[in-house]
Simulated assay, not measured.
Amino acid sequence: MKLKLLLSSFLLISCLAAFSQEKQSNQAAEKGLIKVSVMYPYAEGKTFNMEYYETKHMPMVAGYLGANLVKYTIEKGLASGLPNQPLPFMAIGTFYIKSLSDYQAAVAPNREAIRADFANYTNVAPIILVSEVVK
């Protein structure tokens, strides 16, 4: 019985240590990347088709970015950070890229196709923030 408890404890500690190292490694790998956040503000009467955005729009844009793209994420807004306040954003799409100039070069010839696709999933003009991951 003591041996089983000891083995279980050892396995749990080993798993926690491995998870911690992986998390630190991922954070270090993202440091210095450029993050392009495309945020869709919530407003009464505005719409957003998450299924289309996830299955069509974001993969389309990701395809334009090629090897410069490290990863992308999609977030669905749920609530404001303050009680009884309106949702600030319906959705946020984020691209993690290696080079801003390569991103701009890839997006420029495809800008009209990207903008034309907006009508397929939203009637909101997005806010775009370009930043650098520092930690």
Rank of each mutant, 00 (worst) to 15 (best):
G93D: 02
I34T: 06
G63H: 00
M60K: 10
G32A: 03
Y72L: 09
N68R: 04
L33E: 10
A29D: 15
Y64L: 04
V36P: 06
E30W: 03
G81T: 07
G63C: 00
G32Q: 02
E75M: 14
T47L: 03
E30R: 13
M50C: 14
K71T: 12
T73Q: 12
Y40L: 02
V61S: 03
Q85R: 11
G93M: 08
Y72Q: 08
E51W: 08
K56H: 11
P88G: 02
T94I: 05
G45V: 12
N84K: 13
P59L: 01
G81D: 09
F95W: 04
L69H: 00
K46P: 13
K71H: 12
I34Y: 13
K31P: 03
N49C: 06
F48Q: 00
G93L: 00
I74T: 07
K76G: 03
E51T: 14
T73D: 08
K56F: 05
T94Q: 07
L69V: 05
V38Q: 03
L69A: 02
V38N: 06
N68H: 01
A62V: 05
K46F: 03
P83A: 14
G77R: 02
Y64V: 02
T73C: 05
A62I: 11
E75Q: 10
A62K: 02
V38E: 06
E44F: 12
L78Q: 14
V38M: 05
Y42H: 04
N49D: 15
L87M: 10
V70W: 05
Y72A: 08
P41H: 02
E51S: 10
P83C: 10
T94C: 01
V61K: 04
P41T: 04
E44H: 14
M39S: 06
S37F: 09
K76L: 04
M90R: 03
Y52W: 12
T55I: 14
K76I: 03
V36D: 05
K31C: 11
T47C: 03
Y72T: 02
G66N: 07
Q27G: 12
G81P: 02
Q27H: 09
P59S: 05
A29Y: 09
L87D: 06
Y64A: 04
G63K: 03
I92K: 07
P86Y: 07
K46Y: 06
L82V: 14
K31G: 04
A29S: 12
K46G: 09
G45R: 07
G93I: 00
V70I: 10
E51D: 11
Y53V: 03
S80K: 04
E44I: 15
H57G: 02
E75K: 04
G77S: 07
F89M: 08
N84I: 14
G32K: 04
M60P: 11
P83Y: 11
M60D: 03
V61G: 00
A62H: 02
K76T: 01
L69R: 03
P88C: 01
L65D: 07
Y42L: 07
G93S: 00
A43Q: 09
G32V: 10
K56L: 05
P88Q: 05
I92S: 10
T73W: 09
T55L: 09
I34P: 00
A29N: 13
